[in-house]
Design a protein around this nucleic acid. Sequence first.
RNA 1: CGGGGCGUGGCUCAGCCCGGCUAGAGCGCACGGUUCGGGUCCGUGAGGUCCGCGGUUCAAAUCCGCGCGCCCCGACCA
Length: 479
Amino acid sequence: MAEEKLPTRAEDFAEWYNQLVVRADLADYAPVRGCMVVKPYGWALWENITAWLDREFKATGHVNAAFPLLIPMSFFEKEKEHVEGFAPELAVVTHGGGEKLEEPLAVRPTSETIIGYMYSKWVKSWRDLPLLIVQWGSVLRWEMRTKLFLRTAEFYWHEGHTAHATADEAKEEMYRILDIYERFCYEEAAIPVFKGTKSEAERFAGAQITTSIEAMMQDKRALQAGTSHYFGQNFARAFDIKYLDPHNTLQYCETTSWAISSRIIGAIIMVHGDDQGLILPPRLAPIQAIIIPIYKNDAEKTTVMESANRIFKELKDAGIRVKMDDRDNVSSGFKFNDWEMRGVPARVEIGPRDVEKGTVALARRDRPGKEGKSFVPQAGLAATVSRLLSEIQDSLLKRAIAFRDANIHEPKTYEDLKKIVEDGWAFAYWCESAECEAKVKQETKATTRNIPLNQPDWEGTCVVCGKPAKRKVYFARSY
RNA sequence: CGGGGCGUGGCUCAGCCCGGCUAGAGCGCACGGUUCGGGUCCGUGAGGUCCGCGGUUCAAAUCCGCGCGCCCCGACCA
């Protein structure tokens, strides 16, 4: 079963990623163009992600529901910018039951339109508001170039759609969700992100305000890890979502939508992984600790397994997601590499020598090799492992923050900016004109990522044109 | 959609230029043994419409034509 090593990240980051996704057993290529099969290990990771988010959404008053996969084509025509944004990537069903359909049906690329249509039927009174619904499912966009998890034709996500009586309430909702996303990234995924507002050019099709959280990958490219949009009355007017206010006056609703997709798994891979493979943050890892029993013969096997089984039960009872690797047909060296590839945070090795001494070898995934390996007593192992897991969680976040901050620079001149975005992010004053943004994009391939919220009252000059600027923006090449 | 490359066991590829005998290798897979504290080793075995269609020829994985598919670069992309 000896397999070749992964390409290193330095050699070829893109290839490192491609191979890792498959070899870590997260996903496989599907027979359908641009689509992926999420394998059980990858789905278990996704379930841990969704479980946390679902809990947070419910805790803030949201409820789940399901809307149709197919959307009448005409729905897309109703919001001008929305149709322009999504028409090129729609997959369309033209036949059903062997006959040509009267109106073609689009496979949903996102559900603002059909949910907007339903909301117009459901909302009559100010008492019906706010309406806070989340849909968990998948959507389809005919992307030209795909990559597992990062940009697949079909991908998994949740999409929240809310309707409110006032603009303030809707904006508050947008920011509330953005905060949940931010907390998820820091606390669960150990990924530092910047919250901010998208430029007009980068805004969601049909939105008045688009906010995002942006993360830096190890190749220093930016990944939008989540978005939260405020639509104003755009969709409410397009779909006629109106209510009677307490003064018996007809008003349009203010709506929002927001999403985190399975792309976040790509971010976890690219932020934490190393040349040995995946490194999963303990709070999300499907398997937090792997036990590898080591023995030479049946007699040793009996004694070692006795201890290994006892340890397994102790860890499991302590609430640790633990697995025993009792495969007989591969060497322990192979097992070490195998579980490192899969990113399991903690490894417990137990052999005859350990049984004798009452110890185990405990290895931490974030520090491969001898440095991360120590011999600890079997007594109290569950507590030791729990402590180690939370230490790894913290250390991953600290490492990611240090890496990110070391690769963000503030350009003084446009020439500086060009150099910086070759291999990092630039944080710079920007006059907020589309011209300057387009110029940077064309000349450097870097786009504006977002304009961080709550900037102080500072004054400077646009790094591109030199005109006065009041806010700074991140420029980076993105996924 | 423009530029380049490639389609041969599950995977990576050799063979093709210069047509010929039973189509090969490594990895993976199955079985047996050996090993197991950092990707064991040995043996046996299963597994192939050589992308498709048509043509040339006594003979095509190999030459010619058409088609299809995939990958990379560019364009495009909440």
